Simulated scan of single mutants.
Amino acid sequence: MQTSKIRHQFYLPDDLSRALEDLASRPGASKTAILTDALRAWLERKAGHELDERFGPRLDRQQRIAQRSETMLNAIAEMLDLFVAHQLTLTAHQPPFDIETGRLGRHRYQQFIDQIARRLASNQGVPKLVAVIDETSSRKDKS
């Protein structure tokens, strides 16, 4: 009975050759079957490393999270830069504050902090900017 197999000739190190001999000495096993199964398994993995297959998707997800965080931090830094420049330019020629103006400023600041707390509580700690960034990045991923 003729099969469609091609003969290959190669050399193995002594330790691998002994291990192959030990495996092939078992009943029902042959060197050809062992090497065929091992090579097929290796090729089906596309010579990929098992750790890459296990942790690759997780690392990719971590990288996407880090990129979104970096994008958000960059946007916040730009906003803060623009706000500080605006405030310093706007208030450059104003007279010093009196006591009533200081009180009004502290009151407005407290309102600002309270509003931030309400928004964070209603969004489960996810700022609206993150939602906007997530939407745009998911649109880019789909296209």
Rank of each mutant, 00 (worst) to 15 (best):
residue 107 H to Q: 11
residue 99 I to Q: 10
residue 30 S to L: 00
residue 102 G to K: 06
residue 118 R to L: 14
residue 2 Q to M: 10
residue 33 A to N: 02
residue 38 A to R: 03
residue 10 F to A: 09
residue 100 E to W: 03
residue 45 R to D: 00
residue 135 E to K: 05
residue 3 T to S: 06
residue 86 H to Q: 13
residue 119 R to Y: 04
residue 107 H to G: 12
residue 8 H to E: 00
residue 33 A to C: 00
residue 127 P to E: 08
residue 31 K to P: 03
residue 33 A to I: 01
residue 9 Q to M: 13
residue 131 A to I: 12
residue 112 F to L: 06
residue 51 L to T: 10
residue 14 D to H: 04
residue 34 I to E: 00
residue 4 S to Y: 02
residue 77 A to I: 04
residue 81 D to K: 15
residue 95 P to M: 06
residue 90 L to G: 04
residue 49 H to Q: 08
residue 117 A to H: 05
residue 119 R to D: 11
residue 5 K to H: 07
residue 79 M to H: 13
residue 118 R to D: 11
residue 114 D to L: 09
residue 26 R to S: 04
residue 85 A to L: 07
residue 9 Q to C: 11
residue 143 S to H: 14
residue 19 A to S: 05
residue 59 L to W: 13
residue 16 L to H: 14
residue 123 N to P: 06
residue 42 W to S: 08
residue 34 I to K: 02
residue 135 E to I: 01
residue 47 A to L: 10
residue 51 L to H: 13
residue 25 S to P: 02
residue 58 R to Q: 15
residue 92 A to S: 02
residue 114 D to T: 07
residue 36 T to N: 07
residue 92 A to K: 01
residue 140 K to F: 14
residue 122 S to V: 08
residue 63 Q to C: 11
residue 50 E to R: 08
residue 86 H to W: 13
residue 62 Q to R: 13
residue 31 K to S: 04
residue 79 M to E: 06
residue 3 T to K: 05
residue 32 T to E: 03
residue 82 L to C: 15
residue 46 K to Q: 11
residue 89 T to V: 10
residue 127 P to G: 11
residue 84 V to Y: 12
residue 137 S to D: 06
residue 38 A to E: 00
residue 42 W to V: 10
residue 74 N to K: 08
residue 105 G to C: 11
residue 80 L to S: 12
residue 48 G to F: 14
residue 142 K to Q: 15
residue 12 L to N: 09
residue 136 T to M: 11
residue 128 K to H: 13
residue 76 I to Q: 09
residue 23 L to H: 00
residue 108 R to V: 12
